[in-house]
């Protein structure tokens, strides 16, 4: 494949349609969001799918945006951390992270929040152990793990176990 071909890409990001002509096929979804669309809430922690800081929703499913080529997202719908809240009203997961001190430096937080929102939808919050397991793709070096579990449990509407 000639990497110098340029592509037209249409996709929907946070409810807004984007059409990008002249797209370099090497651009990842992460770099598209950050460098082309300036949606910098999605973070680059490793660029190899190891840390989860770039977690976004692609057609409602969790993905590491660094592992997706942007051209493969043609016609698809992306939700990033910037599109999770309903206007000024925070998503319950976002509010829970504040209420339970589920972050310190905040760099991994967008990815944590996007993962948490999706796994609540998927029904993976049946127990604290299940939350821990399913949140383990998102590294947090400040190590707010106990607080993150509390936040996800609260957002999932479960009582403490």
């Amino acid at each position: 494949m000639d990497f110098h071909d340029r592509h037209l890409l249409r996709l929907r990001v946070n409810g807004e349609d984007h059409s990008l002509s002249d797209l370099d096929p090497r651009v990842t979804l992460l770099d598209l969001l950050r460098e082309r669309l300036h949606l910098t809430g999605t973070k680059k922690g490793c660029n190899f799918g190891e840390c989860g800081a770039c977690t976004v929703h692609l057609d409602g499913r969790r993905v590491n945006a660094c592992m997706i080529l942007a051209v493969s997202a043609e016609g698809r719908e992306v939700t990033t951390i910037e599109g999770l809240a309903d206007g000024d009203a925070l998503h319950p997961v976002q509010q829970a992270f504040i209420d339970h001190d589920g972050f310190q430096c905040g760099f991994c937080t967008p990815g944590q929040v996007m993962s948490a929102a999706a796994l609540i939808e998927e029904g993976h919050t049946g127990s604290d152990a299940e939350i821990r397991e399913w949140m383990s793709g998102n590294l947090c070096r400040c190590s707010a793990y106990p607080q993150i579990v509390e936040a996800v449990r609260a957002a999932a509407g479960r009582a403490s176990q």
């Binding site: 910098t40 951390i81 910037e82 925070l90 976002q94 992270f97 504040i98 209420d99 972050f103 905040g106």
Partner: peptide, 18 residues
């Protein structure tokens, strides 16, 4: 509670590479 919670859970907090 941390006043920086709002910007950090919504992706508005800006780090050097942003």
């Amino acid at each position: 509670a941390r006043p920086d919670g709002g910007v950090k859970v919504t992706g508005r907090a800006r780090y050097a590479a942003d």
